[in-house]
Structures are given as C-alpha cells and as structure tokens.
C-alpha cells in the first residue's frame, strides 16, 4: 500500500514553477529518502504533504486522503521540521504536555525511554539543535503516527547528533513500524538508514525506487578504490580504463576481480566502496 501518492503535482509561486508535475509514491513501512539539491522543491513538496501549502494541480494523497486542512490526517501523520516550530518561551514540559493533551500518547514512557527528565524544565529556546530535534521526534510519537515526514531534520545538527537522530529513526521504524519520509541533502548519513529514495531536481523526479536499484541504475558496476600507491594502481588497472576521482580511482568492473589484481601486484588497498548516494546525487543533479 502507498502511504504517500503524488501524481502530476504542480506548484508555482508568483508565476515561477517550482514543482513541475511530480509523480512518486512511498511504500508503507519504508524509510524513504527525499533527496535533491537546494532549491529542487523538497521543502515545497513537504509543505504540501503537511497541508501548509496548497497544490496548484495534480493529485496528492497521504493514507488515501488529501492533506490540505485535513484534521484526520493530523492524528496519523507527524511532521518534523528543521527547527522546532513552537512558542519559544514554553518549557519542554509545557510543549510535550500540551501536545499530549490533544493526542493522548504515553508521554511518561517516552520521557523515560529517551532520558528527557533533565530537559523538561528548559525553555524551548534554550535547547540545542540536537535536543530540539530529539524533542520533535519524541513529540511526533505521541500520536502513534503511521507516517513521519521530516524536512531536513539534521540540517542544524553536528555529526554526532545526526548519527543519534538517524539511529532513533531506525529504531522507531523497526520497533513501531512507522513509515518515514525524510528530506535531506546530507546524504552520507541518510544512506545509512533509508531503503528507498526519491530523487528530485529542478521540480522534477529524476529517479525513485529501492536505494540499490537507484544506485545501480546510475552507475552499474562502478567502484571507487583508495590505494597507497595511486600511480602504480593506475598502471596495474590500465585495462579497466581507470579514472582518478579525487583521492579515489574509479573503475567499472567486478569488485572482487579488481581487488585480486591489485593484491597480486602488491598494491595496498586502503578502502573500497561501491557507488554512494552522493555519487547518485552528483550524477543526477549534474554537479
């Protein structure tokens, strides 16, 4: 079943076309990354999904319903924004208790589970970015959502906080069966959690599907190798048409075979990786 379904979604601002007929879907139970360069239309799409913007044309359904001004969906769908959008003078306790008075979640359990006791008296404005996102994520669980939509949730977080955030996402998807739709352009961390990807550029969907499918679609058998002696490696691999890509050597062949050849020629291999989401991103966005 598709949790999100969009077909021919169009949105413009003051005559400027921002979304040019998006068509994509998100499967139930998946963690889907919504990636694309700045200005591609990610936030606009997420705001339409959240019911904060209206579509101009096309179809958009979340759990089978139109998201615009739809209170029923608010009980099943949570949205996490880059910044915690709540009156900044309220304390964490007030914020969570206010929301819980509406959604009737198990707040006490969540406070205990996420070790929030020390932060409850802090004002929302006093929270670090990482703490605020943690609070948002916990707040999103008060309604036992079927879907969590997150717009650049880790944009203001340091690397450690980003890893913690995504670890929580993985745990929640696993333990609660929540579907996640996460927009981000910090792809190295996103790649660790998502199983599906929707790639948007210039208001159009450029690729979508399972992560492995999208990666193979873009690069095939391409691999990146980091070696101690680059010159020698290039000589050894000359039959594979190697290309220097920063510190890496890029070749298109079976990984096992390439490693064996390097080993046979005593070239020390420091690191090998197949194509990453970053490579997909660069290829599809023409960077």
């Amino acid at each position: 079943m598709d949790v999100i379904f969009a077909r021919g979604l169009i949105k413009s601002f003051r005559g400027k076309l921002v979304l040019k007929g998006l068509t994509f879907s998100v499967k139930k139970g998946s963690i889907t990354g919504f990636v694309g360069p700045n200005g591609a239309g990610k936030t606009t799409t997420i705001k339409i999904l959240s019911g904060l913007l209206r579509k101009d044309k096309g179809e958009i359904y979340i759990l089978g319903e139109d998201p615009w001004d739809n209170p029923r969906l608010r009980k099943k769908v949570s949205v996490i924004f880059t910044k915690l959008p709540y009156p900044s003078n309220d304390t964490v306790r007030e914020y969570l208790e206010d929301l819980n008075s509406v959604f009737h979640g198990d707040l006490a359990r969540l406070i205990k589970e996420f070790n929030l006791q020390d932060h409850m008296r802090k004002r929302v404005s006093q929270l670090s970015s990482g703490q605020a996102q943690k609070i948002q994520l916990i707040a999103s669980l008060l309604k036992n959502p079927e879907l969590v939509i997150a717009d650049e949730p880790t944009a203001n977080l340091d690397p450690q906080a980003r890893i913690e955030f995504y670890d929580m996402v993985k745990a929640l998807a696993r333990d609660y069966g929540v579907t996640f739709f996460i927009s981000s352009h910090i792809l190295s961390e996103l790649e660790r959690v998502i199983d599906h990807v929707v790639f948007i550029d210039d208001g159009m969907i450029k690729a979508l599907g399972e992560l492995s499918h999208v990666e193979s679609m873009v690069k095939g058998e391409e691999i990146l190798i980091l070696v101690r002696d680059k010159e020698r490696a290039l000589q050894v691999l000359k039959d594979f048409n190697p290309v220097v890509d920063g510190p890496y050597i890029k070749v298109r062949n079976e990984m096992r075979k390439v490693i064996d050849i390097l080993d046979d020629n005593h070239v020390e291999v420091l690191s090998v990786r197949k194509v990453s989401l970053d490579d997909v991103f660069r290829k599809l966005s023409g960077v």
Binding site: G51, P71, K83, Y86
Partner: peptide, 14 residues
C-alpha cells in the same frame, strides 16, 4: 515566526 505550524499540525480545521 512560523510557530503557527505547531497549531496547524493539531487535529483541528483551520
């Protein structure tokens, strides 16, 4: 400030 989003995410019609 955009904090109205918190209220618009609650289960009430505009």
């Amino acid at each position: 400030s955009g904090s109205i989003i918190s209220f618009l995410m609650m289960p009430v019609k505009r």
